[in-house]
């Protein structure tokens, strides 16, 4: 058994080394340059900063445009929390129904989902519609827009997972006489946990990192989202790479925290699946 144990170490270390090289090195580059002076960062070299000023750069990133980044964090996080919660909840139900009910309606819904994946949303007609409803530019309407634009993707990943869950599980529950909402929350929801977590993470990433839609649907003062802050340091004529890189790091932090929270559950979910099998 010794040799297999060694093999685990050898292969594990090798895979770790490769993944660090491929995936971590670019971020090391970002981090190093985020600690440099403007002039030194312009050299784009992979070297230790001659003049280490990570703190100064961090302060500069926060102070830019009257602490715009703080407003941006508030807006982006609120937007992400609201839209992802609603989206994931409803999409889980919808995909369950589509997948289990079958028939013409489900086929139609399937087609719509596919279309939703294929056609990029039409910006200007959507703005006209929201104006007609009198809610254009409001925060709730932005939430609705994010929900609508990410529906297809979310249903898609839920459905592919639901199709692997044995029908007997929920059919048994129906025989037991559970009502459909009760059935859904008590029986189905726990089964969906692994994909639920994945859907939450991915949608959070999409919404939080969305640049274009908030720009159009959430105009006005104090409504910037975090992606817009990148433009504080990069304009047509001038780019402060040190601050830009620092900003990239800073605005990634919420996503890392979110990932750290849900990550354990992914693992748990997967192991559960493996054991359950």
């Amino acid at each position: 058994m010794r040799s297999t144990k060694n093999a685990r170490w050898v292969w594990g270390s090798f895979a770790l080394a490769v993944s660090v090289l491929v995936f971590v090195v670019p971020f090391a580059f970002i981090a190093l340059n985020a600690a440099k002076t403007r002039e030194e960062a312009q050299l784009f070299s992979f070297s230790w900063p001659q003049h280490f000023q990570a703190w100064d750069n961090l302060v500069a990133v926060f102070e830019a445009n009257e602490f715009m980044i703080l407003r941006a964090f508030t807006n982006s996080i609120a937007l992400t929390v609201f839209s992802v919660t609603i989206l994931v909840l409803f999409a889980a139900m919808a995909s369950w129904i589509i997948e289990r009910r079958g028939g013409v309606a489900a086929k139609l819904a399937n087609g719509l989902v596919l279309i939703g994946l294929m056609i990029p949303p039409a910006l200007v007609p959507t703005i006209f519609l929201l104006q007609a409803l009198g809610i254009y530019g409001t925060f709730p309407s932005m939430v609705l827009v994010e929900i609508a634009f990410n529906t297809s993707f979310t249903i898609m990943i839920f459905r592919s997972f639901i199709s692997t869950i044995p029908r007997e599980l929920d059919e048994a529950a129906i025989i037991d006489g559970a009502g459909s909402l009760q059935l859904f929350f008590l029986i189905v929801f726990p089964l969906l946990r692994p994909i639920l977590v994945t859907a939450i993470i991915l949608n959070s990433v999409f919404v939080f990192n969305d640049f274009v839609n908030p720009l159009y649907f959430l105009p006005g003062e104090g409504t910037e989202t975090v992606q817009v802050t990148l433009y504080n340091f990069s304009s047509q004529y001038l780019t402060d790479y040190n601050l830009l890189f620092m900003d990239i790091l800073v605005i990634t932090i919420p996503m890392v925290i979110m990932f750290a929270i849900f990550n354990k559950r992914i693992v748990a979910g997967m192991t559960a699946g493996a054991v359950k099998g």
Binding site: L123, V124, Q131, Y216, E221, Y231
Partner: peptide, 21 residues
């Protein structure tokens, strides 16, 4: 109120004007 520069900014200006925002 700030906007990105370059082509993204151009788009934004046109869209905002067209939609009265």
């Amino acid at each position: 109120v700030t906007r990105p520069g370059g082509s993204t900014g151009d788009n934004l200006v046109k869209t905002k004007l067209a939609t009265g925002t």
